[in-house]
């Protein structure tokens, strides 16, 4: 493991205990004992903290793999339409009033992600080319977004509408261990798959044709990318809703600390993503607002200016 990864692990190890102590109820080991402290820690904050790490790791790692695969620093794991499709699945669960049934919402989200993955895999089987494939992904994203809007506009009552809209903003509020058990295995498997594509992503640094000549099998790579991104993003959306910008921002922050090979970026980006989402979620929890700031909104507030700065810097490099 590289020095960068060790440093990030150390930061996570420091941040996690602090995060557990902070929130509406502050639990300080040196102060008066708080009633129900153990329950708050074990049943509310620990699963939430771990979920933040898992979702963040997934988004960061997936972002690094996507940027490597598309050879584009502006790529984001949402691009292929898997995240919007998963969100549409979850919205359907809310629309049909099934969200109260345990596991129904994440299951619907995973079905949505699976649908998008199947569509992408069908397209991937036909061509190994990246440009056409990305366009197809954008179409899926746009379709899923439209269907989600349709569901909102047709929703049976204002409560369902507000429930859907709130859910779409993305958050980790009131999550439990069951969410961790859904997200953890899928995300870890997905990240392992993405890490395995590393050498092929490295070869793509030289362009599609050079990558082919170095023994990369374009179609197979596309399958693995769809599979890995689908698992990670599907699991993330299923438990946390749409959380943007992490997959875009984190690889950029991490890249200068690596040798810039895509394969050497996936793991540190996963760790940095985990750290970012954990810290952001903790900040959301402790901000003194009337109702808790939604994590998705907070990260977008942070991400949009970052994205603009990035564009400006790229423009400077181009001119």
């Amino acid at each position: 493991m590289s020095r960068l990864c060790i440093a990030l692990c150390a930061l996570i190890a420091i941040a996690l205990p602090f995060s557990l102590l902070m929130g509406r109820v502050w639990i300080a080991p040196w102060a008066e004992p708080v009633p129900h402290a153990a329950t708050i820690l074990m049943e509310l904050r620990l699963p939430r903290g771990i979920l933040a790490l898992i979702v963040g790791a997934g988004l960061g790692g997936a972002g690094a793999a996507m940027q490597g695969y598309l050879r584009n620093p502006l790529a984001d794991p949402g691009l292929f339409g898997i995240a919007p499709a998963a969100a549409f699945g979850a919205v359907m669960a809310l629309f049909l009033g099934l969200a109260a049934i345990p596991f129904a919402l994440p299951a619907f989200a995973l079905v949505g992600a699976g649908g998008a993955m199947a569509l992408l895999a069908l397209i991937a089987g036909r061509t190994g080319g990246i440009a056409l494939f990305t366009l197809a992904g954008l179409m899926i994203a746009s379709l899923a977004g439209t269907l989600t809007s349709l569901a909102i506009s047709l929703s049976p009552n204002p409560f369902a509408t507000s429930e859907i809209v709130t859910w779409l903003m993305g958050a980790l509020t009131d999550r439990s261990w069951s969410d961790v058990w859904i997200a953890a295995p899928l995300t870890l498997l997905g990240l392992a798959v993405l890490r395995r594509t590393g050498p092929a992503l490295d070869a793509l640094t030289l362009g599609e044709q050079a990558a082919l000549s170095l023994g990369v099998e374009a179609k197979r790579l596309q399958w693995w990318i769809v599979f890995g991104i689908g698992l990670v993003v599907g699991a993330g959306v299923a438990v946390a809703g749409i959380i943007g910008f992490v997959g875009l921002m984190v690889p950029h922050i991490v890249r200068p600390f690596t040798d810039r090979r895509p394969s050497h970026l996936v793991l540190p980006s996963a760790l940095a993503g985990a750290l970012l989402v954990l810290v952001a979620d903790t900040v959301c929890r402790v901000l003194p607002l009337a109702s808790e700031l939604r994590l998705g909104i907070a990260l977008s507030l942070l991400g949009a200016p970052f994205f603009l700065a990035l564009l400006l810097r790229l423009r400077k490099d181009l001119t």
Binding site: T205, A210, R260, R261
Partner: peptide, 18 residues
């Protein structure tokens, strides 16, 4: 040919060993 990422010459040449 061009490189998508700003790697070092050493890293670039190492890609030939893939």
């Amino acid at each position: 040919s061009d490189a998508a990422w700003d790697v070092s010459v050493q890293t670039l040449v190492e890609l030939g060993r893939l």
